[in-house]
């Protein structure tokens, strides 16, 4: 009985094995040119519909648009990150992304061992010959949101809901405040950090308390927890802004505009730079200039905004693109 079972198992294993080898792999490329290879390490699941999903989308676009060979891994601990980077280095990948500031040190360590691979972290400040951070200048967009809020507010107050107090998030808030106070120096901006990016309830409670304090515009940087912000704004009929992507559909009647960061496009751009051997170590800037950071209106609500405000936003957008206006950043 046991032996029969064993034979069955072995048979099954080998039959599968044979089927695999029998079918010629369609994906096998012509061997001549060495293919461009890009790897991605994410701190969470690529199915999260947010931070990690965006990076994965970028990776897929690199595959499709640049014909690259791609690979990705979810890594939670530094040893896993180091493993991932080393593995990409050892397999001769041209570029390896680490999607978060926490990838700086593993990147630095692996980069020393594999000088032919370029390691890119999403935000951070570590730079070596083959390690650089991508810097998304969302401040350019949040500055304009601040302008809109200050010009359209009736109460003279706006509220900001943040997840964790990270430099990138704080910086976008600094720019929002600067934009608002460029219109009205007395404009009040209140900030609450909930301490995490996934507690929808906490974000909702924070938003409600800001609304109770008189804020009539809400902007958030709380990733998935941002859902709670939109719930609160819908319930209390308060206008708000979307962040990172066009979030109009989260509250179609209340989201006035979104500060969009086209991360996938940045990934493609970054890979293109490396592929075309144009890479120079240092912070890799992505903003209004290469159309990766944008301000996107909710067309349905745009009519309710005063034409003067819209004209002012357009004017400032051009100034930022031209480089004559530099919104302040937190770091």
């Amino acid at each position: 009985m046991k032996r029969t079972l064993l034979v069955c198992v072995l048979f099954a294993v080998f039959s599968c094995q044979q089927r695999e080898t029998a079918a010629p792999s369609a994906a096998a490329p012509a061997p001549a040119a060495k293919p461009f290879k890009a790897g991605l390490l994410t701190p969470g699941s690529i199915n999260d519909g947010g931070w990690n999903a965006i990076a994965y989308e970028g990776l897929q676009r690199i595959k499709n648009e640049l014909g690259a060979e791609v690979s990705n891994q979810e890594t939670k601990t530094p040893p896993e990150m180091l493993d991932g980077f080393r593995s990409y280095g050892a397999k001769g990948f041209d570029i390896a992304f680490g999607h978060g500031f926490e990838y700086q040190e593993p990147a630095k360590q692996a980069a020393a061992e594999y000088p032919n691979t370029i390691f890119i972290t999403s935000s951070g400040n570590t730079v070596t010959n083959n390690v650089s951070p991508m810097r998304f200048q969302i401040e350019e967009s949040t500055y304009l949101l601040g302008v809109i809020a200050a010009r359209e507010s009736k109460t003279g107050k706006a509220g900001l809901v943040g997840g964790i107090n990270l430099p990138s998030i704080d910086s976008s808030f600094v720019a929002f405040k600067a934009g608002a106070q460029s219109v009205n120096p007395k404009f009040e901006v209140k900030t609450i950090y909930t301490g995490n990016f996934d507690d929808v309830g906490a974000a909702k409670v924070a938003t409600l308390s800001l609304i109770n304090a008189g804020c009539d515009f809400i902007f958030h940087q709380a990733n998935e927890a941002g859902r709670g912000v939109f719930q609160a704004c819908t319930e209390r009929k308060v206008r708000c802004f979307g962040s990172n992507k066009n979030q109009t559909d989260m509250a179609p009647d209340y989201v006035v505009a979104s500060a969009v960061v086209d991360v996938p496009a940045a990934f493609v751009e970054m890979a293109k730079i490396v592929k075309e051997k144009r890479f120079k170590p240092g912070e890799q800037h992505f903003g209004f200039n290469n159309n990766i950071v944008r301000l996107e209106w909710n067309d349905k609500l745009k009519a309710s905004i005063s034409p003067q405000t819209i004209a002012e936003v357009d004017r400032l957008t051009n100034e930022i693109k031209a480089g004559t206006l530099k919104p302040p950043a937190g770091f």
Binding site: S45, N47, S71, Q73, E74, T75, E80, D83, S87, Y88
Partner: peptide
């Protein structure tokens, strides 16, 4: 756990 990492990188099987 380590093998699962390689499984993701090489075969695209989820970290779970």
């Amino acid at each position: 756990v380590t093998g699962a990492g390689e499984l993701q990188r090489a075969a695209g099987i989820s970290a779970g």
